[in-house]
Simulated assay, not measured.
Amino acid sequence: MGIAAFFAFYINANLPISMGLVWISNPITIPPIFYGTYLLGALMLGTPPGDFHIELSLDWALNELTAIWIPLFVGSLTVGIVLAVSGYLSIQLAWRMHVASNWKKRKLNRERRQNSDTPPTP
């Protein structure tokens, strides 16, 4: 979180969002995310998902990752693109709604001021 906060501040990014997004990918959530993207990639490529077990060794990484890296890459790329586009569009929509709401409030305030400044007609 500290590194994310530092870079968010340094590049003038949104600090709360940067720090919050760190919690999406952490050591607890990475295995289900990777497994889900692997399954999606295997489905997209039409290959049956293989049975594998995870070991924390260099031998496992060299042997197993060579078999699963293509479906993992395709699934991760697909999920990344879909989430990036949907995140961008939802932020754009939220921003436009916020700006439109502010414009309406300004218009109402301007009309109220104009109506209260005019003297009453006899």
Rank of each mutant, 00 (worst) to 15 (best):
M1Y: 11
F6Y: 12
A8M: 06
F9Y: 12
F9P: 01
Y10H: 08
I11V: 07
I11R: 08
L15N: 04
L15E: 07
I17R: 00
I17N: 02
M19H: 01
M19T: 05
I24S: 01
P27Q: 03
I28M: 06
P32D: 04
P32E: 06
P32A: 06
Y35I: 12
Y35N: 11
G36D: 10
G36I: 01
L40I: 02
G41Q: 03
A42M: 09
L45T: 00
L45Y: 10
T47N: 09
D51C: 04
H53Q: 12
I54W: 07
I54H: 03
I54L: 11
I54Q: 02
E55P: 02
E55I: 06
L58K: 13
L58A: 15
D59A: 15
D59C: 05
W60E: 03
N63R: 13
L65R: 03
W69T: 03
W69D: 01
W69Q: 12
P71C: 07
G75K: 02
G80T: 14
G80P: 04
I81S: 02
V82H: 02
A84F: 12
A84R: 08
G87T: 02
G87W: 02
Y88N: 14
L89F: 08
I91Y: 00
I91H: 01
L93S: 15
L93Y: 15
A94N: 06
S101K: 13
S101G: 13
K104H: 12
K105A: 09
K105G: 00
K107M: 07
L108M: 13
E111D: 10
R112T: 09
R113D: 08
Q114G: 03
T121L: 15
T121F: 04
P122W: 08
